[in-house]
Structure formats: C-alpha cells, structure tokens
Simulated scan of single mutants.
Amino acid sequence: MAPWCAWAGRSASKRRSMPPSMRRCCLRSWPPEGSSPSDAECSCHSIRSAMPTTSGWSKLEVRPETRERHPMTEAPHNAPGQHWNAADYRHNADFVSALGHEVAKLLAPRPGERILDVGCGDGSLTETLVKAGATVVGIDTSPDMVAAAKARGLDARVMDAHNLPFEHEFDAIFSNAALHWMLNHEAVLASLHRALKPNGRFVAEFGGHGNVAAICTAMLAALQARGISGRARFPWFFPTVEEYTESLEAVGFTVESIELIPRPTRLPTGMTGWLETFAAPFLHGLDEYLREAILNDALALLAPSLRDSHGNWTADYVRLRVKALC
C-alpha cells in the first residue's frame, strides 16, 4: 500500500509540536486534491501505511524500509552530485597532484613493477610512477578524468575501486587524494587487498580526521540555517589513525606506517573555486538560488578564519598517509 504522512490532517496546534522537517511537509495541502491518503505520498520521515476502515484511515507501524539506514552497511559507494571535469580540476586544484609527490616517494616505485593507481584523475601524478619505470594501470570513476589521463598516453580505465576485477595482479597499489570519496571503505580495502600480490604494498594519502573541518562546519551550518539536514549530504570519509588501522588489519593488511599530517593548503582560485570543485554533494538537487545563498553564507562564515588580510584563502587540510603490506 502507498505511504502517507501520519501527521497529515492534524490541527495547527498539533502540527506545531512536530519536528520542523515534518511540519514543512505537512503544511502542504493534504491529501492532494482529488486523492485520498492511500494514493498520496509524503516526503517527511514519519511515513506509514494506510488502510481504509469504516471510520476512516488507520495508521500502522513504520515500514521497515523507511527507517533510518545504518550509515556504514547501507551507505552509497560514492557521494551523489559530484561530477568531475578535468579542465576545471586542473584550474582550481592543480595543487593536489603537486602535493602528492611526497607520498609517491613513500611508494618508491621500481622499474618493472606493476602498480595500480586508484583515483588517478587526469594522470598527472601517474606519469611520475611511469617515469620511474613501473607499468601502471590508472583507474577512476570519472570518464572525463580517464579521458584526460589517456590523452597523456597512460593506461587509464573507468573503474570503481569498491569492486575491482583484479586477483593478485599488482606489486603495489598507490592512491593520492581519492580514498576519502569512497564511502564504503571496508569494501574498498578488501578489493585492494585482493588485487595485490602476496607481500605487495599499499601506499596512500587522503583526507584524515579533522580534514577541512572548518569548511565542513560552515557548509553544514549554512544548510541547517535553511532547514536542510547535511548529514546525508556529507560526501567524505575522514578516519582517525586508529579507525583506519583497524580497517586495514581486518582485511589482512599489516600496517608499516600511518600518520595524520596537518597541511594548511593555499587555494590558487580561492574558496569559491574550491567549493565549486569539491562541495557539489552538499548542494545536490537544490535550486540554483538556494545553492548560491548557501555558498555565500559558507564563505562569510569561513572568511574570518581561512582568508588573510590580502584576500588569500587557505584550506584546513589534514592528510592521512599510510603504508601497509599485504
């Protein structure tokens, strides 16, 4: 049976006792003209089944599928609303690959090795591994990024790291500034472990606990000010050292080194360029005027702490750098 809102049709005094998100939903005309509760739907969180009775419509228990999802077991693999454009990324975020050379040194690629670069982007850092004499396969979920990497002459493929087709094929796996976008990190780590040869190494750097904390707080506050929950829109996984160590060991890795590295990072095109490049999931599905207002509010909140007197912006980056053995 179709769901309907358990609060629909209540008096104004009753509606005032509802949570705001439900109240906004139920202040609409209900049920819609020409329909009954059995064929109408409500977008609020108090969704129930309706059954006709001699006295009207009865309310049953909340359907299991409408209950809140567990954030880890049922989370989407990647954040909705994030789309990558190689040219825009190069313009707003070319610092990402430039700052990845330190973790590439930790990998220490050797001639003849077969290496998987997870989240290769446009291939800028992948080229460094190839120049060291390694045979590198780059993977990314973005067709535009993969096309840009192929234009460099690289072996790049559109592929999702949550479920790789490789079985014990690589001497090493490398990843820079990508793993925090992959929300089911347990599935990713199991997939990477399976792709490595025995004694293979995994070297990565990505957003760790506390990464862009001020930016996250400002975006969430700007959303909340308009009655929009940011919890389901949060697009990243930023683990602590302890959390990620536990996850690595759970799938069979032995951690050789792992650390959080605070790295305040100058933004070449300012905070506006950064938000346009990386923060789309916070604004996914919102009208353009609302997107603009939320971004303006976030910029106002961030300016006192992340913009200097000359107008230069810095992002409060904290990176997690790890080396583990299969």
Rank of each mutant, 00 (worst) to 15 (best):
M18E: 07
P37L: 11
I47A: 09
D39T: 13
C26Q: 02
S43Q: 10
R15I: 09
M22N: 07
P32M: 01
G34Y: 08
C44L: 10
R23V: 13
I47H: 09
G34S: 10
S35W: 02
I47V: 12
C25F: 10
S17I: 00
R24E: 11
C42T: 10
C42M: 07
L27G: 02
S35N: 11
G34R: 07
R16E: 14
P31I: 07
C44I: 03
C26V: 14
R23N: 06
P31S: 05
M22L: 01
A40L: 03
E41H: 10
P37S: 05
R16H: 09
H45M: 08
S43H: 10
S43T: 11
M18F: 15
E41T: 09
P20K: 08
M18G: 03
G34Q: 10
C44R: 04
C26G: 08
R24N: 08
S36T: 11
P31Y: 05
D39I: 13
S35Y: 04
M18W: 13
P31A: 10
S35G: 01
L27E: 15
E33L: 12
S36A: 11
R28N: 12
W30H: 04
P20D: 13
S43A: 14
E33H: 11
C25P: 00
M22G: 02
R24I: 03
E33P: 10
R24D: 04
H45K: 12
E33M: 07
W30K: 05
M22I: 07
R28C: 02
S29T: 13
D39M: 09
H45V: 14
R23A: 15
P31W: 05
R16W: 03
S43Y: 01
S35K: 15
D39F: 02
P19Y: 05
C25V: 15
C26W: 03
R24P: 01
P32C: 05
S21N: 04
A40N: 10
C44N: 02
A40V: 01
R24K: 13
A40I: 02
P19C: 11
